[in-house]
Every structure is written in structure tokens, then in C-alpha cells.
Design a protein around this nucleic acid. Structure first.
Length: 865
RNA sequence: GCCGAAGUGGCGGAAUUGGCAGACGCGCUGGACUCAAAAUCCAGUUCUCGCAAGAGAGUGUCGGUUCGACCCCGACCUUCGGCACCA
């Protein structure tokens, strides 16, 4: 007999059988509870790495566990298949994105098979197929009719390298999330979803999401960014116009000494027209527009501005204040214009000092005087109103309300709420996405594509070249006829952001083949909302807000009955891998291909320029080259070891640095399990229940461990603590391995019964983690059918209870002795036993016992002095 | 800068509810088996002192609450994540 089993052969064999039996087809028994487990579907890049592996293994363990608990489990998988990489690959290799994507999908599908994941492949969906994206178009049209999809010209984030518009979420530090190019501003006609209409609901409904991580909810709250304030106008006497402003600090309104407009503000043009500062101001505005987000947007950049030569009048005291244009005011937030109060706002303060604008304090701490002339930073704390007319003497908190009320009653302004959240720009000037189903007719204007003409198919007669939207190169696509007048019309050539695809895919899985609607209403009612959703924390603000938004819209359209799509959310941490960055070559180097693995704690040098390299732990990605692929792990150690290991290394919500240092431990463990069962298979008695209560103390101890393990594994799967669940099974094997020797020495029915029960529990407890090995062992002990279809562990709490407990005896909080006593011993008995302990007696010598604390079944603490 | 999370052996990490710190695993040390190695098995492994029995210290730092603190409270340090001119 060998020490290890033929992993590859066993895994291939069971994967084959599962496939033949279609074992993972979704069960739909009416009498059972329904459970929908959903993993965030991947972009089909072609390779699954260890981050994916952990994600999908978590899902597989939980899904298998729920199946064994007797529930109907929906555990589907699909592909977030539209997006830029396919298009970039098309440019590079001259293959069509569809071919490239299909090849990647086939490869990843195969890898999921190798990992032994229990997906119901009959429900596979791919967002790049017309059967899917046609419903994106249909949903878009429903939203268009409701005014929730609209078109407007706007300044958008433009990536010159990708030649496309980016959502705010796709701009990281002013750089394109994908290619790191500097993002600039560009005015374009764009399609938007009116997500701001739902800002308040998206915020309010977070409260009810009890089973979402607090961290994600906090991020969403910040992202939505609700703030309450007052909106009112400063009049422009020369222009017969006014500037609308929003402020959260209306208590400081008497401290306004100037106004600031964003360079893009619509009134800039009129203000500059007959100003003596026109030339200088225009130059400044143009400079701002040419600047990228990072040059202009970051807080570290110096505040710059220019005086317009014009004045505005404050509605509260009739004062005239100069109007400036400055780079620190954003057109996208509020009204694009601010009342500047340098005494009480640090940004305004810095600006005022730089340009010599007066500073007037209107709030002072009790008993102190704040002087605008001499203060060195803005005073932003609470205080008492001064220089504020009738409001002098009030605390600024009181003044907030008093001034707001005054402004409302006198018709100057009104209290409003502003959100940081902006409407969702969904237009992309790209080919590999869902065409936006809109037509432009020369006579009738903008029209939705007729629903009976959906899907609007992506054409294939296109060219892929850098910097051009390939969809505009099709000689046939744009040309169409107007459904209203029959005249010639032109199709919209923008495609949709791929976040549209992932905003409703969880519904499609309930009825993936529905042909006359995006989803079957009954199926959706049966399965949704998703009972457990799992994915990377990086989707906290984008995908998870969009999916919530879509659900609310669908609810308002009467298509679904719920308003939140995911009841339980679990966010797994990211798995990174060390890589070495050369700052002078500006590239990542990875061992062993680019350099030798540096010793721990030592720095490595760049092989080409000799500069020392910076060690960085980065998220695994193809572009950095620090990928550890799932299939390489499965080939080296087998899927069962790889699966168990990724869960054993630590809690799944932790970020982690990949290392396969410990993988041998799990590999050895599974081999020990195999030997334990395979080498003692003759000791297995299928009728163990008849004799399992027999035998002495040692037998009881083993059974106790078995049932304790069953309890722990169950609880640990429920709480996503897979690492400790696996540890528990390792402990069980450490107990069973020596016990198994008894079968040879003392082959009674009682011995076999205890062993058999233990083995059965062990195999089933392990089966969600290491399903191939478990199936093999299940068959080896003569079981019919699949371990996957067996019932989950039934832990007996009575058997799991310890009869004797170790009581810790402390003297003044310090452990001095341990006593082994019967469970549930009385307080008095424990106290006496503790005081009688010889060790305690020695330590107590010459001391008075002042107090004794007894915690039954735990400890006795003697306080003495 | 603001908000949030986390700091435990050489390493990954355990520790229901304030009650035995270091489960489980890696690594390391010694041993068994072997001609030898691999594999496997056994023993040890927080640190300091000690031949040992044992004693002392110990969960980022400093303080507090408590009979008792990795756990609760306050201040600070470090790391990671999110946001970053949001008026």
C-alpha cells in the first residue's frame, strides 16, 4: 500500500461521473426551502487565479452544505463578457472580440470543472449574447419612458488612451483605472441613468440591510454623500440675473466676502462679456478646462483663481462682494458656485489670503475674539454669532436654524438636500458592449428603437483600430429607417457601460432561458432576493449600488416584488502576491521569470538597470504578471488540496499575501484521511448504529470528539470561518489515526462501530471542502450514491458534552493549579477543592483569603493578601 | 486631512459571553525507519533564567475599569482600506 492516493485519477473520475449524472442540476422540490447562493460572476479573462479560487470555493462549500441540509439550492455561474480587454485583444491580434471571449469562456469553464465546483451549468449565461443584452436594451427603454434614462451634454471624464468616457468610479486618482493615462475633461452628448432620483432611498434602505458588512454600508453612505443645507441667490445688478449657491453653513452667511464660480459655470460667459478683466479671466478658464482631473482635482494642488471684475449682492445684508472664478470649485456639485466665507472655511481662507481678499469673522468661541485680519487659519468650531445683524449672540447651532427659517419666510432661500452621488453616465464610445437602442431621425428627432426590433445587434463588419469607436466604422449599422416617418435615420453608436449588464444578472439566473421577457416573474419570486451574495470588497460602491438601483427601478416598474436584491452579503478580501517594482524601468518584475526569488528581508536589484527594487504586494493580475493560476495549483496538488488550502490559510474576509508555504500541510492532511479510511476499510461496519453505544471510556472520548467536530464544522460553515472548521477536522483525524490501530488489536463490533461512525462523519464533514476524495472514500466504505446527496452531519449535543472539565485555580488572578472535576460541580465543592489544593496551600502560606470567586465549570479565583 | 478596520510566537492564524493565551498548520530541532534519500511516523518548539522541578515576563505603546482584560474604556504609535477641495 502506498502512502498517497492517485489524486489526478480520482478527481478526473468523479468529475466525469458528476457530469454524466448532471448531479448539480438545480433541485426544485416544492416541499423544500429555497436557497440562492450567488458569486459575483467573473470577467472571462481566460485564467482563474487564487483570488477567484478562494471566492468560488467559498461558494461551493456553502452551496454543497445547503444541498446536504436538504434545501433546493440555486448555484449558477455566468460571464460578465462585455468589456474593453476583448476589444484591446482584437486590435492586437486581429481576432474578433466574440471569438476571443468565447475562447476565454471555454478555458475558464474547463477550470471550474477541474476545481470541482458544483455549478448548475444548464443556467450558464453570458452577457455578450443577444439573448442577454437584448434585455439590457429592453430595460433601457422602460427606463427611458419613465424619464430615468436621458441624454444631455456634459463634461465627462475622458481617457485619451482608451478613447472613451469613464464613470467617476473608473477614475482613480485622476488616472484611468484601466490604463493609467491622465483623464481629461471633454464635453459630449451622453446617456445617463437618473440614479440621483433614488439617492435618498439608496441611503435609507441601507438601514434594513442587517446582513451586510458595516464597512460596505459606510462606504455607500459616503459615496451617496447626503448633506443638508440652504440654497439661495446672490443677485447680479448689472446683468439682471442671479447666482444660485448651496451652503451647509448658513450660519456663516454674514461672513461672505466674495463669491466663487467653477470655470465651467454657465454664467461665466455673461459675466466676462463686458468686464475689464475679460482677457485675463478667459485665459484662466481655458487653462482649467485643458487640465486633467489630477492636475486640477487634487487637494494638494494650489488654489488658483481670477477676479471677474463683477460684483454680486448678498440677500441678507445687501453687501456687494467680488465674483471670482477658481479651480477649487466643482461644477458637478451643488450649483457650481459658492459663497466664500474665508473666516470659517479653510479653502476660502487660503484663497482669500493668497489674493488679499478681506476676512470677516462671524463666529467666535465663547469669551474670545476672532480677528479676521490676524487669524492664521479658518475657525471652524462652534461658537457665538457676531457681525450677523439680528442673529448676534446666538450660538451658531441655533443660528443655523434661525437664519434658515428667516431666509425661507422672507423668500430669499430654501432648505435643500444635496448628494455627492451623480447621475450614472452609461455611454461608452466602444464596440464590445450593448448598443443603446435609440434612433435619430432627421425629421422626427430622437426616438427609442421599437421594442419588436430588439435586440439591436452588434454588427460584425467593423474595424478595430486604436482611438476610434469601431461601431462607427460599420458601413451598415448606423443607417436605418425611422419607425415613425419611414425616412432615413441614424442609430446611436454609443454602447452601454458593462455595469448595466451586472445590475440585473442575478434575476436572469432564475430563468436563464426566458425568451419573451428578461426573466420569468414566478421563477424570480421563487428564488429572489439572493440569500447569500459573495464577492470582492472592491465592488462596494459601484456594482453594489447599481444593482440596488436597478432593483428599485424594477420594483417601481412592477416587475419584481422586492426592493433590495441581496439579503446577505459577504465581501472577501483580496489575495495579493509580492512583485518587484523597478522605479527607473517603470515595470514590474516577477520571480522566477524576471529575477531570482530574493531571500526574506533582503532587497533585490533590477537585472537590467541594477537599481534596487521595491517589493509590493499587488492584486493578482495578468498585466502585473504575479498570477498564480488555479489550474497550476490543481495540477500540482489536486483540486481538493487547493480548495481546502485556500480556505485553511485564514479568514476569508482578510486580505492576504499569497504563499504556498503551508499547502503541504493540507496535502498531508488529506493523505492522512485517505490512509485512515482506505487502510482500515475492512473495519467499517455499515450497521454501526447497532453497537455504537458500547465500549469503555476511550470509546466515549472518541465519540465525543466526533460529535464536537460535527458541531464545530457546522457552526463554522454557517459563520464563514472555514479555517477553524478545517482545523477541527484535522484534530479529529489526529484522534482517529491512533484509534484506528485498535481495529487490528481488538476487532469487536464495538470498536468497529465507533470507528465507522467517526469515518462516516469525517467523510461527510469534509465533502464540501474536498468533494472528490470524499466521494472516493464514500464509495470505498461501500456507500451507494453520492456523498453530495447524503444528509449533513447530525451532531448529538448530549454526546458532545464533556463529562469532566478542567477547573483553573487562580490566586490573585494568576493561574496556580488545574483540577479535573465532574461537570456541574457545586460552587462550594469547587471552592473547597481549590483551597485544598497543595499548590495553593503553599502559595497561601501566611496570607488571608479575602474573597473567592467561583465560575462553575470554568475557574476558581482566590483573592488573598 | 477625514472616515473605517486591524496590530497575538520565526510565519499563516486560534481563543462562544470578560475566565487555561498561542488550537490547527507551516517552518525549525531531535529521534525512528532506510545503505542513503524521499515519503511516513514519534517527540519538542512564545520569550528569559534554570540540569531539573520550577520561577518570572508576555497579545503594538501608555494609562484606566475589574477578583480577573487579546477581549471593555481613554490617549498615542504603526499598518492596511475607503474618501479626498463635496461648499
Amino acid at each position: 500500500m502506498t502512502d498517497s492516493y492517485d489524486i489526478q485519477q480520482i478527481e478526473r473520475k468523479w468529475q466525469q461521473r458528476w457530469k454524466e449524472k448532471n448531479l448539480f442540476a438545480t433541485r426544485n422540490d416544492p416541499g423544500r426551502r429555497n436557497f440562492y447562493y450567488l458569486d459575483m460572476f467573473p470577467y472571462p479573462s481566460g485564467k482563474l487565479h487564487m483570488g477567484h479560487m478562494r471566492n468560488y470555493t467559498i461558494g461551493d462549500v456553502v452551496a454543497r452544505y445547503h444541498v446536504m441540509r436538504g434545501e433546493n439550492v440555486l448555484h449558477p455561474m455566468g460571464w460578465d463578457a462585455f468589456g474593453l480587454p476583448a476589444e484591446n485583444a482584437a486590435i492586437k491580434n486581429q481576432t474578433h472580440p466574440r471569438e476571443w471571449t468565447h475562447a476565454c469562456i471555454a478555458e475558464m469553464h474547463n477550470q471550474f470543472g477541474q476545481m470541482g465546483i458544483s455549478f448548475d451549468w444548464d443556467r450558464e449565461i453570458s452577457t455578450c449574447e443577444p439573448e442577454y443584452y437584448g434585455w439590457n436594451q429592453w430595460l433601457f427603454l422602460q427606463m427611458y419612458r419613465r424619464g430615468l434614462a436621458y441624454r444631455r451634454g456634459s463634461f465627462v471624464n475622458w481617457c485619451p488612451s482608451c478613447a472613451t468616457v469613464l464613470a467617476n468610479e473608473q477614475v482613480k486618482q485622476g488616472l484611468c483605472e484601466r490604463c493609467d493615462a491622465l483623464v481629461t475633461k471633454k464635453q459630449l452628448e451622453q446617456w445617463f441613468f437618473k440614479i440621483t432620483d433614488y439617492a435618498q432611498q439608496l441611503l435609507d434602505d441601507l438601514e434594513a440591510l442587517e446582513h451586510w458588512p458595516e464597512r460596505v454600508k459606510t462606504m455607500q453612505r459616503k459615496w451617496i454623500g447626503r448633506s443638508e443645507g440652504v440654497q439661495f441667490r446672490f443677485t447680479l445688478p448689472g446683468l439682471d440675473s442671479a447666482i444660485e449657491v448651496f451652503t451647509t453653513r448658513i450660519d456663516t452667511v454674514f461672513g461672505v466676502t466674495f463669491m466663487v464660480l467653477a470655470p465651467e459655470h454657465p454664467l461665466v460667459e455673461a459675466l466676462l462679456r463686458d468686464s475689464d478683466r475679460e482677457a485675463e479671466a478667459r485665459a484662466f478658464v481655458q487653462k482649467c478646462m485643458a487640465q486633467s482631473e489630477i492636475e486640477r482635482g487634487s487637494a494638494e494642488v494650489a488654489k488658483e483663481g481670477v477676479f471677474t471684475g463683477q460684483y454680486a449682492v448678498s440677500p441678507v445684508n445687501g453687501e456687494q462682494v467680488p465674483i471670482w472664478i477658481a479651480n477649487y470649485v466643482l461644477m458637478e456639485y451643488g450649483t457650481g458656485a459658492v459663497m466664500a466665507v474665508p473666516a470659517h472655511d479653510q479653502r476660502d481662507f487660503e484663497f482669500a489670503r493668497q489674493y488679499g481678499i478681506p476676512v470677516r469673522a462671524v463666529i467666535q468661541p465663547e469669551g474670545e475674539v476672532v480677528d479676521g485680519e490676524t487669524m492664521e487659519e479658518a475657525y471652524v468650531e462652534a461658537g457665538v454669532q457676531v457681525n450677523s445683524g439680528q442673529f448676534d449672540g446666538l450660538s451658531n447651532i441655533e443660528a443655523q436654524t434661525a437664519i434658515a427659517k428667516f431666509m425661507e419666510s422672507s423668500g430669499i432661500g430654501r432648505r435643500t438636500v444635496n448628494y455627492r452621488l451623480r447621475d450614472w453616465c452609461l455611454s461608452r464610445q466602444r464596440y464590445w458592449g450593448t448598443p443603446i437602442p435609440i434612433l435619430y431621425c432627421d425629421t422626427c428627432g430622437l426616438l427609442p428603437a421599437p421594442e419588436d426590433q430588439l435586440p439591436v445587434l452588434l454588427p460584425t463588419d467593423v474595424e478595430f483600430t486604436v482611438g476610434v469607436n469601431p461601431l462607427t466604422t460599420s458601413p451598415t449599422f448606423a443607417q436605418t429607417s425611422c419607425p415613425q416617418c419611414g425616412g432615413s435615420a441614424r442609430r446611436e453608436t454609443d454602447t452601454m457601460d458593462t455595469f448595466v449588464d451586472s445590475s440585473w444578472y442575478m434575476l436572469r439566473f432564475a430563468s436563464p432561458h426566458a425568451g419573451t421577457a428578461p426573466f420569468d416573474r414566478d421563477d424570480v419570486e421563487r428564488w429572489l432576493p439572493v440569500d447569500q451574495y459573495v464577492g470582492g470588497v472592491e465592488h462596494a460602491t459601484m456594482h453594489l449600488i447599481y444593482a440596488r438601483f436597478f432593483t428599485k427601478v424594477l420594483n417601481d416598474l412592477g416587475l419584481v416584488k422586492f426592493r433590495e436584491p441581496f439579503t446577505h452579503l459577504f465581501t472577501q478580501g483580496m489575495i495579493g502576491k509580492a512583485t518587484y517594482w523597478c522605479s527607473s524601468c517603470r515595470k514590474y518584475l516577477n520571480p522566477p521569470a524576471d529575477l531570482a526569488e530574493p531571500e526574506a528581508g533582503k532587497t533585490a536589484a533590477c537585472p537590467s538597470c541594477e537599481k534596487s527594487l521595491e517589493r509590493r504586494v499587488e492584486k493578482m493580475s495578468k498585466s502585473i504578471g504575479n498570477l498564480v493560476t488555479a489550474d497550476s495549483m490543481c495540477q500540482t496538488y489536486g483540486a481538493d488540496t487547493a480548495r481546502t488550502y485556500v480556505l485553511f490559510v485564514g479568514p476569508p474576509d482578510n486580505d492576504g499575501e499569497w504563499s504556498d508555504e503551508g499547502v503541504s500541510g493540507v496535502y498531508r492532511f488529506l493523505n492522512r484521511v485517505w490512509r485512515l479510511v482506505a487502510l482500515h476499510a475492512e473495519g467499517f461496519d455499515p450497521d454501526w448504529r447497532n453497537h455504537v453505544g458500547e465500549g469503555g471510556e476511550e470509546y466515549k472520548t472518541v465519540r465525543r470528539k466526533v460529535h464536537q467536530t460535527a458541531q464545530k464544522v457546522t457552526r463554522d460553515i454557517e459563520r464563514f470561518a472555514f479555517n477553524t472548521g478545517i482545523s477541527a477536522m484535522m484534530e479529529l483525524v489526529n484522534v482517529l489515526t491512533p484509534f484506528a490501530e485498535r481495529i487490528g488489536q481488538d476487532p469487536t463490533l464495538a470498536t468497529k462501530a465507533v470507528f465507522s461512525e467517526a469515518v462516516e462523519y469525517l467523510i461527510l464533514g469534509l465533502s464540501p471542502f474536498a468533494p472528490h476524495l470524499s466521494e472516493e472514500l464514500w464509495a470505498l466504505i461501500g456507500k451507494q450514491g453520492s456523498a453530495y446527496q447524503a444528509a449533513w452531519l447530525d451532531a448529538d449535543p448530549e454526546l458532545a458534552k464533556e463529562e469532566e472539565v478542567t477547573i483553573v485555580v487562580q490566586l490573585n488572578g494568576k493561574v496556580r493549579d488545574r483540577l479535573l472535576v465532574q461537570r456541574a460541580a457545586s460552587r462550594q465543592a469547587l471552592e473547597q477543592l481549590a483551597l485544598d489544593s497543595p499548590v495553593i496551600k503553599t502559595h497561601l502560606d501566611g496570607k488571608n483569603v479575602r474573597k473567592v470567586i467561583v465560575v462553575p465549570d470554568k475557574l476558581v479565583n482566590i483573592v488573598a493578601g
